[in-house]
Design a protein around this nucleic acid. Sequence first.
DNA 1: TCTTTAATGAGATTGAGTCTCAAAAGTAAT
DNA 2: ATTACTTTTGAGACTCAATCTCATTAAAGA
Lengths: 141, 141
Amino acid sequence: MATNVQLLKDALRKEGLLYTPQRQIIWDEICKTDDHRDAEEIYFKIKQGGHKVSRATVYRTIDVLVKNNLVRKLELGDGRNRYENKLDSSHHDHIVCIQCGRIDEFMDENIEKLQDEIAKKYQFKIVRHIHQLFGLCRDCN
Amino acid sequence: MATNVQLLKDALRKEGLLYTPQRQIIWDEICKTDDHRDAEEIYFKIKQGGHKVSRATVYRTIDVLVKNNLVRKLELGDGRNRYENKLDSSHHDHIVCIQCGRIDEFMDENIEKLQDEIAKKYQFKIVRHIHQLFGLCRDCN
DNA sequence: TCTTTAATGAGATTGAGTCTCAAAAGTAAT
DNA sequence: ATTACTTTTGAGACTCAATCTCATTAAAGA
C-alpha cells in the first residue's frame, strides 16, 4: 500500500494537484480489487466503508487516475464506463460473456503487431485501442 | 431501393412486426449514406426531409434493424451510438481520429483468425466484437 | 364493418456523467 | 500563528442519449 500512496502523490504532483484524503480513499478503493467496476460501484463501496466522499469527487479523481495511467477505462458499450487499476497488470484486452457478465483478459502479441501495421497503412498515430470479444463463456454456452 | 424495401419487409416479417411507412422512412434514411451517424442525426435528417416520425420510433426501429443485421451499431465510447447500414459493406472495424472525428474502416483477415483462436483458447463462443483504433490521422498529426 | 392487435407520438422518466458555486481545507508568506 | 490566497470538496442542479408510458391511431382479420 505504501507504493500506492507514492504513485498517487507522483501523479498528482505531475498534474499540479494537491494530495488529499479523498483522493487517497478513492485510489485505495480502486486498488482493492482486480475487478472491472463502474464509478457508481466504486462510489458506493467507499460510502459503505464509512468514508464520506462525494460522487463528483469520485468522478473527478478517476479522470485524473486514468489520465495518469494508474487506472484503465473500459468502454464496454453498455452505457457506463468501468475501471481497473493498472498496478500489476500489463496491457491486455477483454473477452466478455454477454450472458453472465464475466470478463476475462487476453493479450496477443501478433494482434498488437498487426494493429501497428494497420496504423502505418492508414497513416494514423495510434494512442489507444479498444478490442473486445463478446460471446458466451463456457459455462453459459 | 426496391431491394431495400424487400430487405426491410423480410426482417419485419421475421420479427412478427408490421411493415409501416415510418419504418420504411427510417430505413431509407439510413441507407442514404455510408456515414456513421447517431440516432439523433438520423432523426433530424428525417424531420428535415419533411417526414413526421417520432424520436421513439426512430430508436425502436433502429433496434430492429440492428437485431436483423441490416444496420451495424458502432460504440465509440463517446456516449452515443452510431449506426451504419450494412447494405454493401462487408465486415470491417474502425480507425478513428480523436482530433477531427474522421472514421476510416479496416479489415484484417489475420486479426480475425487470431480472434477465433483466442475464443477457442478461452472456450468462448463469440457473437460479435469491437475493435477500434484511436489516434491522430495523417492530417491531424 | 366490426373487432382485435400492433404501432405511433408526445412527453415524462431514467441514469451516467458533468457542472456550479458556496463552504471547507490546504498552502505560503509574513 | 495569522492572514491572504488558492485549490478542493460536496450538494444538488443540470445535460443528454436513450427508454418508457399510455392514450391515440392505424392496420389486419373475421
